[in-house]
Structure formats: C-alpha cells, structure tokens
Design a protein around this nucleic acid. Structure first.
Length: 179
DNA sequence: GCCAACGTTGGC
DNA sequence: GCCAACGTTGGC
C-alpha cells in the first residue's frame, strides 16, 4: 500500500468490502461522532483522521486490545436530529498515544498522563464511502438482527463498540449493498 | 432544552 | 471497597 494516495486506498478498500473478501472472522466497529464536531463528510474530506479524544477505558481498551488495521468501521452520527450509521471507514493505523492528552491547551488534556506512561491512545481511520442510504438508530432497534448492538441499548454512551461480522454484513445489505 | 442513564471521582 | 455526588452523553 505504500505510495498509494488516499483516493487509491479508498477505492481499493471499497472494492475490497464489496467483493466478499473481508478477512473471515474479523468483526466491525461502530465509531460514534457528533457531526457538528466531526462528521463523516469531514473524514472523507480529510482522507484519514486520528481518532483523538477517547477518554473512556472501555473504548480505549477496544482500540488497544481488539481493533486491528484493516478492520471495517461503521461511522455513526450521534446527538443529531436523526442519529444513525452514515458511512464506511477502515482502520488504517493501529494504536498509538493520543497527543492531545499532553497538550495543556487542548480540550482533551489529561494532567495525570505522562509521555513515558500514556493513559490514552488512538487509532486512525480512513473514510471509504457514504452508505447508499443511512441506517437510523430507530431502524437498528427495530431490526431483530441489529437490535442487540451496544449502540441500541437504552442510555448507551460507549462511543466505540463491536459489531459482529454477520451483523455488519447484514447492515451493509440493508444499506443497499447488494450481494 | 430536558433529563435519564451512565462513568468517574473521592470521602469514608 | 462502598457509594453518593458530580459531570457528561445523547436520545427525544
């Protein structure tokens, strides 16, 4: 992949996803974002983005322990009129310290963290494509297959959560990707 | 804007 | 280790 532009990367991953060649046994992940803070369109504009600002241990542990380069990501818009999954992304860089924890001027500064023993980390996402059609939270809850997802639980605040491979495939199909 | 649900903090 | 208080998230 070295030397590939973001556009080329995106196109190749799009093909990759659409051609049933996802590594078997890999789950997908939902990453929540408030579109006013960072929308899926911004990710497509930026190409890739380090997922800074995670300050929750469960979400951090997913990134540190479970999420791998190449894992598919469902990009979810929260705190908006119609919350739901709006786009596809992929993890293109693995876990590393989140620089914002060391920056005293940053909103996510954590004075208890040190560069020698960083508390918080991040992974990097690359945007692939907007879904042919958004899958709303309401729809996810109404569908038996997706209703067990963490994101559907009442009061769920976890901003990164697992989507089993089969459920992920089902969501793609529902979103308009024909198989 | 409301407020239920949640995660974290800190006194004990 | 308990748990009340607090600040935050996020659907509605």
């Amino acid at each position: 992949m070295q030397g590939c532009s973001t556009i080329e990367l995106r196109a190749s991953f799009h093909l990759f996803f659409m051609s049933h060649t996802i590594t078997p046994g890999r789950d997908a992940w939902i990453f929540k974002s408030e579109p006013e803070e960072y929308s899926f369109d911004m990710l497509l504009r930026d190409g890739q983005s380090p997922w800074t600002g995670i300050r929750n241990y469960q979400a951090r542990n997913f990134m540190r322990d479970d999420i791998q380069v190449g894992d598919p990501v469902l990009f979810y818009h929260s705190s908006t009129a119609i919350p739901g999954i709006v786009g596809l992304a992929v993890v293109t860089k693995g876990y590393e310290p989140d620089p914002t924890q060391f920056d005293a001027t940053d909103h996510y500064f954590d004075p208890t963290s040190t560069p020698t023993n960083p508390r918080w980390g991040l992974v990097t996402l690359t945007g692939i494509a907007a879904l042919p059609r958004h899958i709303t939270l309401q729809e996810l809850r109404e569908d038996e297959i997706t209703s067990t997802l963490t994101v559907c639980m009442r009061g769920s605040r976890l901003s990164i959560s697992r989507v089993p491979e089969q459920v992920y495939q089902h969501i793609l199909k529902t979103a308009g990707y024909d198989r």
